[in-house]
Design a protein around this nucleic acid. Sequence first.
DNA 1: CTGAAAGCGCTTACAG
DNA 2: CTGAAAGCGCTTACAG
Lengths: 337, 337
Amino acid sequence: MGAKITSLQVAKMAGVSQSAVSRVFSGASASPATTKKVKKAAKQLGYRPNVLARAMITGKSRIIGLIVAYLDNQFYPEALERLSNALQAQGYHILIFTVSNSTDGIENVVQDLLDYQVDGIIAASVSMSSGLTELCVKAGIPVVLFNRGQPGSGLSAVTSANIKGATMATQALIDAGHTRIAHIAGWEGSLTGRDRRQGFEDAMAGAGLTPFAIIDGMYKRNVAAATARQLMAGETRPDAIFAGNDHMAFAVMDEIRQMGFSIPDDVAIIGYDDVPLASWPAYDLTTVRQPVNRMVEATIDTLMSAIDGQDTYTQTIEIEGPLIQRGSSKPLKGSPL
Amino acid sequence: MGAKITSLQVAKMAGVSQSAVSRVFSGASASPATTKKVKKAAKQLGYRPNVLARAMITGKSRIIGLIVAYLDNQFYPEALERLSNALQAQGYHILIFTVSNSTDGIENVVQDLLDYQVDGIIAASVSMSSGLTELCVKAGIPVVLFNRGQPGSGLSAVTSANIKGATMATQALIDAGHTRIAHIAGWEGSLTGRDRRQGFEDAMAGAGLTPFAIIDGMYKRNVAAATARQLMAGETRPDAIFAGNDHMAFAVMDEIRQMGFSIPDDVAIIGYDDVPLASWPAYDLTTVRQPVNRMVEATIDTLMSAIDGQDTYTQTIEIEGPLIQRGSSKPLKGSPL
DNA sequence: CTGAAAGCGCTTACAG
DNA sequence: CTGAAAGCGCTTACAG
């Protein structure tokens, strides 16, 4: 068992040279007669080329390293699935690394990826230190950041239009007549979190309103829940909360309902992402949609052209998504429903 | 850029042979003096061994192929994360393939995996045709099925004790006083689905009860929701529903609540898996816990000993989990709460 | 179009 | 302990 079949054995059986076998399988030119003989022998022996050996020579492993965190946030499994499908369709394979949100894990991960001679790296919601970035650049391995920009890093990034999206969400709350609007923000250490906060502040300022509160929810369920409880337990309460993402918004809704408040009557909630769960009746969450499919497309495109060496310059792509109005917030004030 | 540093360059700089460099990095014996010189040169040049080249010679790629479907079911992202962490800790890396539930996709996937010379394969909730199984056996690549047994396949498998778990769940409904109990079953094409159905039927028969209905929910949200609606729209209605997994149970709860029924007063619901969402207040779902961490442990253990060639025999491991009583079902009849 | 040969970057017996 | 050499399974100029 495990008796590996090599191109040499196929060659012998087919009565041709080893190079001929290689040519047939690597798509190089070969006469119909040779091709036929080789294919027949290969089939009989169950031969398939060793991809690792091929990779060594061509310098192309056709492996893409994917680094992902936050798998408990429904946005990422979906993104992972779509990235995976898109990459498979192009004949690439994904070497996956899951990391925790802490930064220290990622150092080794990138080195491991590089050791495997990956052709490119997609980093979903993780930050790359300048040292790591340099490492990849030196190795000539393109990196694309997914759903997390990193200004000044020199890395390509694909995100949604976070400032604009957050402005839309906040504006919707303002237009519905809310005045005491709080923001449970995404992790301040991430550009995504900072941009959404910026959008919130812009909209509030534009309406001449003072934020009821801005608190970092760290993109974590328990932090968001605790924050919500604290906000709602006070003497004066917010009449609306914009959460930095859906994952936190669900925790906020759970907590607030448990306290006996009604959504959206006592307090309106808006999230960000539009993960599948947001549309389920149990939450029915108003949210800003991040168009996963278009973000994935852009990511793959960016990565592929970098691998092909077409574009050596860095691209930052922002994709806009609509506000999806649902039951967790009130429609426009005075608007018919 | 991309000027790959090889062991030969390190050797020249360190003034030793290429073999010496290799020995230092592959953990073979080398004198302290040599080791020091080599490490110094390697560091200066930023050298790291090419894992692909190493894999070619040793015949060990340290890559594990992971096939996963149903990523929209919260159980799998969690399992993926834990599998990934456990494997990384052992120095293995995961080549991931996401497949749809349809069987046709997996054929090519396994071939791709084999082409990459993976050391082993973990198949999460996907079935392997006998042809595929034979392919892996011939290639000497161990396969472990995760959360999906396949009797007669000769493959190792790790699952929860599905029959027992389903019996417990059903018994809990019976003990709470329900008599018109329906089962929205997991996909009949899967052993998991059939076993849970079996457990349901056993418990019902044991109590002298006739199932109100048994309908295949295909492990799909929309099918489960439609089934629930149909059941509840009838003249006589079930007073309890056991769903084949949590993912379907959530859909059932959403649908039933939208119809205006109350849970658990009008109808009690129990699921299977105990995914994180089950404990969130919005669902508060009574369910049978699948101990992911122990299932992952068992999977890794089984795979590793197969890779090391210690155990060539097939193992089928079933892990028991407790029933987690929550608000979607009533506690034991007459019990204080 | 085809075969003989070199070489990808390593590991590992084999002598010394 | 160490170096020279063979070889893992391929691809790819190079002649013919």
